[in-house]
Structure formats: structure tokens, C-alpha cells
């Protein structure tokens, strides 16, 4: 039997995906060139401007930097802000090929 909500007023718990799978909105996706990305090339925590500017909070502050494609809307702000131009926005239909 499926779990059913028994709340008598409209309540929800903050959780990833509560607003829907926003990755479905994306028609271009960010692709990181790790040979240009500053933390990857220096091998230490640095730059992370993509993490700082991402309006969706889907970029990790890790080496290498990772982007959660389930919720990345493909806005392209990370690519715009990346100092060494390591992030390229690729059309979704081309990205899979």
C-alpha cells in the first residue's frame, strides 16, 4: 500500500526535489573541462566561483567540481563566471551523442 499523507493542513518537508525535478527544464547543459578548471589543475581548493554563483546550489565545492544534473536548470551562469572558461554550455540533444 502506498504511503498517504495524513496532514490536515498543507505541510511539506524541505527536501531536494520538493519543487519538482528542475533538471527537466534544461535545454543546454554545463560541461566542465577539467584540464582548465582551477581546483582540478591546481589540485587544491580554489576559485569555486561556479559554486558561489550557482542560483540553484547544485554545484559542489569539491575536486573535481561536480554539478547535480537532476536539478541544474542550464542557466549558464557558471559558464559565464568561470575565469578560465572551463565550462561550456552544450545543447542537450548534442550532449548525449
Amino acid at each position: 500500500m502506498e504511503a498517504k499523507d495524513t496532514n490536515i493542513s498543507a505541510l511539506c518537508t524541505p527536501a531536494a526535489g520538493e519543487g519538482g525535478r528542475t533538471g527537466d527544464w534544461r535545454d543546454v547543459r554545463p560541461v566542465i573541462d577539467q584540464t582548465k578548471c582551477i581546483p582540478a589543475t591546481k589540485g587544491k581548493a580554489a576559485c569555486f566561483l561556479c559554486w558561489l554563483y550557482c542560483p540553484e546550489g547544485v554545484v559542489t565545492m569539491t575536486i573535481p567540481v561536480q554539478i547535480d544534473m537532476d536539478y541544474c536548470k542550464g542557466c549558464g551562469i557558471c559558464a559565464e563566471e568561470c575565469p578560465p572558461n572551463a565550462i561550456r554550455m552544450v545543447r542537450e540533444e548534442d550532449a548525449d551523442e
Binding site: T22, D24, W25, R26, D27, K73, G74
Partner: peptide, 11 residues
């Protein structure tokens, strides 16, 4: 349209 909020990029 489909009634409701519409968002750029969303199906």
C-alpha cells in the same frame, strides 16, 4: 495553455 505557472525551459 496548460493552466498554472509556466517557467522558461520547463516542459
Amino acid at each position: 495553455p496548460t493552466f498554472g505557472p509556466e517557467r522558461r525551459g520547463a516542459p
